[in-house]
Design a protein around this nucleic acid. Structure first.
Lengths: 212, 212
DNA sequence: GTCTATATTAAGATAGAC
DNA sequence: GTCTATCTTAATATAGAC
C-alpha cells in the first residue's frame, strides 16, 4: 500500500481509465434512451439505470442532461457523413452511388439507434443541428451534387436532380432504421430480417434510375 | 330572456356548437404542439395557450393529455391510408402507382404536421399504433402487394419486390414532411418550395423503376 | 363551461457525507 | 468518485367558486 498522494501519474491513469469506462457507459445508455424516447421523453433516471450508475454520478461526468445529448449528436456526425464524403469523383458513377447506398443501408442496419437519434432531432425542428445542417452538411451536399451533375452532363448516368437524388438515398436507407418497427410489423414474423431484401430492392431501384 | 332550464333542446344545441368549436381548437392546437415536440415534449400549457383556452378547460373536454393524443392519432389514420386504398387493380399499373406517389407527396405537402405526428410515434416504437400496424395496415399492404405482384407477373410493370416498393413510396414522400427542416436548409433559400422539384424527381424515379 | 387555486408527482440538479 | 438526501421547478390533474 502506497501513501496517499504518491505516484500521481498512476493515480491519474487510474482515474482516466475509470472515467473512460463510465463516460462510455453513460453515452451508450444515453444513446439507448434518447433514441427510444427523444430528448424530452428521456429521463436521467432511466439513463442512470441503464448505465448502472447513480443519477448524481451521471452529473459528476456531465454537467447536464443537455450536455450528454449534445455530446452524442456531435460525436455521431462524422459517422453519419463519412459515406457521402467517400463518394469518389474519379470512380465509376453508378458503382459509386450504389456503394454509397449500400454503406448508408449498412449504417441503418448496424447503428439504428444513431439514426433514430438524428431523426428525432430533425423531426422536431433540428434545434441543435440547424447550424451543422446549414453549414457543413449543405457544403458537402453542394460539392457532391456537383460531382453527380458532372456525371449526368457527361452521359455517364441518366439525368437526375442531384440534391433530390441524395435526399432519396437518405430517405430510403434511413427508413429501415427509423421506421424499423413498422417495417417489421408489416412484413410479419415470416421475414425477420428486412435488410437483405431491402439491399436488393434498393440496388435495383438505383440501377434502373441511373444506369444509362 | 328565458328561464333557466327552459328549451333544453336549444341549450343542448348551444352546448354542442361550443363543444365542437372548442374540441376542434384543442385538437388543432394539440396537433401543432405534439407534432413539433413529441408526446412527452408537449405540455398541456402549450396546447392550452395555442388553443386559447385555460388548462383546466382542456381537461373539461378531454380526460387527459394521453386522450387528446390518442384521438389525434386514430382520427388521422384514414387520411393516411386512403391513398393506398385508392390503388385500383383495374387501372393502368404505372399510372396507378404514380398517382399513389403523387397523392402521398401531396399529403406531405398539405399535412406535414400529421406526418410528423406519425413519425414521432413510429420512431419511438409505435407504442400506441402497433396494433393498427400489425392489423389493418398489414392487411392493406398484403392486399395491395398482391395487386402489384400480379401486375409484375403479367409483365405490365418491371419485376419489383411489392412490399419494399410500398416502403419506398412511404419513405420518399414522407421524407419531405418529416425532414422538411433539413431539406430546406440543404437546398438553401434560393429554393423555398422543394415540392414541385420533388414531384418531378419522384415521377422520374418510379417511372424508370417500373415502366416496362 | 370556465376560471383561480392547489394537490401531487416527476425530473433536473445540488449539498454534503464518506 | 460515489452515494443518500434534498432542493426546485415544472407538469398533469383536480377542487371548488362563479
Amino acid at each position: 500500500m502506497r501513501a496517499r498522494g504518491a505516484r500521481p501519474v498512476n493515480e491519474a491513469r487510474t482515474r482516466t481509465r475509470i472515467q473512460r469506462r463510465n463516460t462510455g457507459a453513460i453515452l451508450e445508455a444515453a444513446l439507448e434512451v434518447f433514441s427510444a424516447h427523444g430528448f424530452r421523453g428521456a429521463t436521467l433516471d432511466q439513463i442512470a439505470e441503464v448505465a448502472g450508475l447513480s443519477k448524481p454520478n451521471l452529473l459528476y461526468y456531465f454537467p447536464s442532461k443537455e450536455a450528454i445529448h449534445l455530446e452524442l449528436l456531435t460525436g455521431l456526425l462524422d459517422l453519419w457523413l463519412d459515406p457521402l464524403r467517400a463518394l469518389d469523383p474519379a470512380g465509376e458513377p453508378v458503382a459509386e452511388i450504389l456503394a454509397y447506398v449500400r454503406r448508408k443501408l449498412e449504417l441503418s442496419r448496424d447503428f439504428p439507434r444513431e439514426s433514430r437519434l438524428f431523426a428525432n432531432e430533425v423531426l422536431q425542428g433540428a434545434p441543435r443541428l440547424s447550424g451543422v445542417i446549414a453549414g457543413d452538411l449543405r457544403a458537402l451536399v453542394d460539392e457532391k451534387a456537383g460531382v453527380i451533375s458532372a456525371w449526368a452532363a457527361a452521359g455517364r448516368i441518366r439525368p437526375v436532380h442531384p440534391r433530390h437524388l441524395i435526399f432519396s438515398i437518405w430517405a430510403l436507407t434511413q427508413h429501415y432504421a427509423d421506421f424499423d418497427v413498422q417495417v417489421r410489423l408489416v412484413l410479419g414474423p415470416a421475414e425477420p430480417d428486412p435488410f437483405p431484401e431491402a439491399g436488393r430492392h434498393l440496388t435495383a431501384l438505383f440501377t434502373r434510375l441511373l444506369a444509362p
